[in-house]
């Protein structure tokens, strides 16, 4: 069988000019990438443009769309809740990200140290939170941070003589609880990424520094940190963009109350669209969120470039 096939094909090739073979190849190329572009156009590209369109219309999802100009933007910019959602998001992004990356760096440094044993156990335990779903994380932490004076977190605080906190409604209590969830789920992930970065630094550099009498801190400051710069920039970038899209943790943790102390930008969008049926203002907030993310990305890139010099 194969022999015959080859024969047939060779004769075909001989008959056809090179041009068609080339054409066939490009047709195949288009064919192979077309499923992506078809589905992506329908379910991603079109929605993105339609969001911009909807942002200038008033619509409850069912009736007629009504053009209202900039009114939706005015409406949400006048809504104190919207500003609250922005400040909440930024505060929680900072609280969830900065300590997380610092701790991840320290853990990675410890894991990379040659004097530590049981590395595999530590690696697996620290990474395990990352495979749990955010819903599960939010529920579990919801029972750790309960309002009750006898909830486990409040009991722990009482050992330090701190009076119990209403985690479900306190301005900072809520933010601490939600940031903890982000911290817990992602610290191991970033630890492994930092660890990979540290392992690629040749050991000779440290040995040479030690011979020159560099202290541990000097080694970190002048060898580890500079060489890890691209990795660190990457993790900062991913974590900031990710935490600007915070949604599941506050939604599950806040439950039906949707308290404003914990509302985030995406939660605001979700509430406008699917609880208030205000698709226009929801789209306007989506557009603003989009630009905020772009601005933060640009700032990230500029800082990264600056540091890179």
């Amino acid at each position: 069988m194969p022999e015959i096939q080859t024969k047939n094909n060779t004769t075909k090739v001989l008959k056809m000019p090179y041009f068609t073979e080339r054409k066939k190849e490009s047709l195949t190329g288009y064919l192979y990438i077309s499923p992506f572009f078809i589905l992506f156009t329908i379910f991603s590209i079109f929605p993105i443009f339609f969001s911009f369109y909807l942002a200038f219309h008033r619509w409850n999802g069912l009736g007629e769309m009504q053009y209202v100009g900039w009114r939706n933007f005015k409406l949400i910019l006048d809504d104190p809740m919207f500003w609250k959602s922005i400040s909440n998001t930024f505060i929680m992004a900072l609280m969830g990200t900065l300590p997380q990356l610092i701790v991840a760096f320290l853990l990675a440094y410890a894991l990379n140290s040659s004097i530590v044993r049981f590395k595999n156990f530590f690696r697996i335990s620290i990474f395990m939170p990352n495979v749990t779903s955010i819903v599960a994380v939010a529920i579990v932490f919801g029972t750790i941070y309960t309002n009750s004076e006898t909830g486990i977190m409040n009991v722990v605080l009482s050992y330090f003589n701190i009076s119990p906190i209403n985690w479900g409604s306190n301005e900072w209590g809520l933010k601490v609880a939600i940031s903890t969830m982000v911290f817990w789920r992602w610290v191991g992930y970033n630890t492994i990424i930092y660890l990979a970065g540290m392992q690629s630094i040749p050991n000779e550099l440290y040995e040479a520094a030690k011979i020159d009498g560099a202290s541990l801190w000097q080694q970190i400051r002048y060898i580890t940190l500079p060489l890890m710069k691209p990795v660190i920039i990457f993790t900062v970038f991913v974590s900031t963009i990710g935490s600007l899209q915070l949604f599941t943790e506050p939604l599950v943790f806040l439950g039906r109350t949707m308290r404003e102390e914990g509302i985030t930008m995406v939660l605001y969008l979700y509430r406008e669209a699917f609880m208030n049926n205000a698709f226009g203002t929801a789209s306007a907030s989506a557009v603003i969120l989009f630009f905020i993310i772009i601005i933060i990305s640009v700032i990230n890139l500029l800082v990264a470039n600056r540091l890179g010099k």
């Binding site: 190849e25 490009s26 992506f40 991603s44 929605p47 339609f50 600007l244 979700y270």
Partner: peptide, 28 residues
């Protein structure tokens, strides 16, 4: 494979990776 517009289309895919998915949530 060789086909016209390959690089442009690929860059386009890279760009779309950076757009937050919530932007298209409501129309989707």
């Amino acid at each position: 494979l060789r086909f016209k517009g390959k690089n442009v289309l690929f860059v386009f895919i890279l760009v779309t990776m950076m757009i937050p998915s919530q932007l298209g949530l409501i129309p989707s």
